[in-house]
Design a protein around this nucleic acid. Structure first.
Lengths: 239, 239
DNA sequence: TTTTAATGGACTAGAAATGGTCTAAATTGG
DNA sequence: CCAATTTAGACCATTTCTAGTCCATTAAAA
């Protein structure tokens, strides 16, 4: 992540802070986003430690903070579970929304999100997006559920770049639907390592376009990304 | 909001001009504009020194000034933390969404809604849309709050025509923002009887296009509708 | 049922990072 | 030149993080 530095005029890139609290904050965001839904189980402490390149004790401290905030519940021998209710009626919508309908909605709003993102993204937004990008690239070709989650986090960071509170709220709802449902079967059919590579390169292209404020490329990239996802989905349904 | 950023204002070419107070000023601004949020940890003194190409003592002097101004708190062995509340994060999306941001979002999704509506609307949907249409026409030139309510109902019926549960759910969220708050003032400025007539004819055109499955016209109509709404809004903000 | 693997809980000693303090030399501007 | 500031260190006390180990509990497999 140290690749990009203070080349342009005067933004020295003050960078951010780290530690257990930072991990807690990141997980808190993921829970609020719907990346981890209600009553869902979080990855094991040892896995989180590996993912965040931190020790298990540090992750435990972060989880302790979340537990203190009544966002998660921990059960010995079982796991750590989300105890935060994100919206209530979302469950209903999630049940009744098909994968194709989800893609339809995403095709409707994400291109415009790309426009707004190139216009309004701050350096901090870009940093977060870059982090999400390396996260999703890091977990490639491993567990597909983990990949889907990281992908959702990337797109949420993308939504955050618009700096439009309503847009961000809407995308939370979209993500909660996405994580909720009957996708498990689809995932295994679609997310081949090849496809993951394709998606990753599109993610990176999108990030680069937003960073360089290239609206046209950003819009084209995200549309292509979603079109391919839709095509893959239709192909998977056929089988 | 993030329009104006770093450099303009004080120091034209000052990578070294200024010293401790200049660093303090930059950090102060970063804290004020939320680059470093409440209770977040700043980079370590040694890191800040490296980023600003200054010695640690100088950075410490800058931090001392910030501490004096009660912007940060320093804990030995732990770090330097923001103690400034930047106007307390308002979790209510409706409160934080401006009229212009709402229009941005609607411009993003309603055109695609028009496409889906012409494809998927059932006769029952069309009947409901027609009913909403006559309702909004009936209450024209009366109380503007009532008109706004009827207009929202029409657009919700429009959303229902997509038969996409997620899309319908999203639009419900949009409408809830719309009905919320600071719009009362705008309404009175914008919704002149003339404007209401314009809006009504656009509503009817949209209905006709959907009914006759004319996708192109439907999309054009709703885009025009929202463009005019946006223009009116910008005009109203000017006054 | 028993066995096995995985999970969170608890603890430790040591390494690493952090702000606090001090000193002496170098730089800067009047 | 002088005085103030900045720099480049070193060292300290405290806190946090690490890398383990062992345990009790749970859930699923044999």
């Amino acid at each position: 992540m140290g690749a990009m530095d203070q080349s342009p005029g005067k933004t020295p890139l003050p960078s951010a802070a780290g530690g257990a609290s930072a991990i807690a904050a990141q997980l808190r965001r993921a829970i609020m986003d719907g990346t981890y839904g209600y009553r869902e189980r979080l990855p094991a402490e040892r896995d989180l430690a590996q993912h965040y390149r931190a020790s298990r004790s540090t992750v435990r401290e972060a989880l302790r903070q979340l537990e203190e905030g009544n966002l998660v519940t921990r059960r010995i021998g079982s796991g750590t579970f989300v105890s935060y209710r994100g919206g209530g009626e979302d469950d209903d919508v999630a049940e009744r929304t098909s994968p194709l309908e989800l893609i339809e909605v995403r095709l409707a709003i994400e291109p415009q999100m790309a426009r707004l993102a190139t216009l309004h993204a701050t350096q901090r937004d870009l940093d977060r997006l870059a982090q999400a990008l390396v996260d999703v690239e890091a977990c490639a070709s491993r567990d597909r559920e983990i990949y889907t989650r990281a992908d959702a986090a990337f797109h949420q960071a993308f939504a955050d770049c618009t700096r439009n509170p309503l847009m961000i709220g809407l995308y939370r709802q979209i993500n909660s639907v996405r994580s909720h449902a009957q996708w498990a079967r689809m995932r295994d059919k679609i997310l081949s390592p090849d496809r993951q590579r394709d998606y990753n390169s599109q993610h990176r292209a999108l990030y680069e376009a937003i960073r360089s404020r290239d609206t046209e490329t950003a819009v084209m990239t995200i549309m292509e990304h979603l079109e391919i996802a839709r095509r893959d989905l239709i192909g998977a349904v056929r089988d």
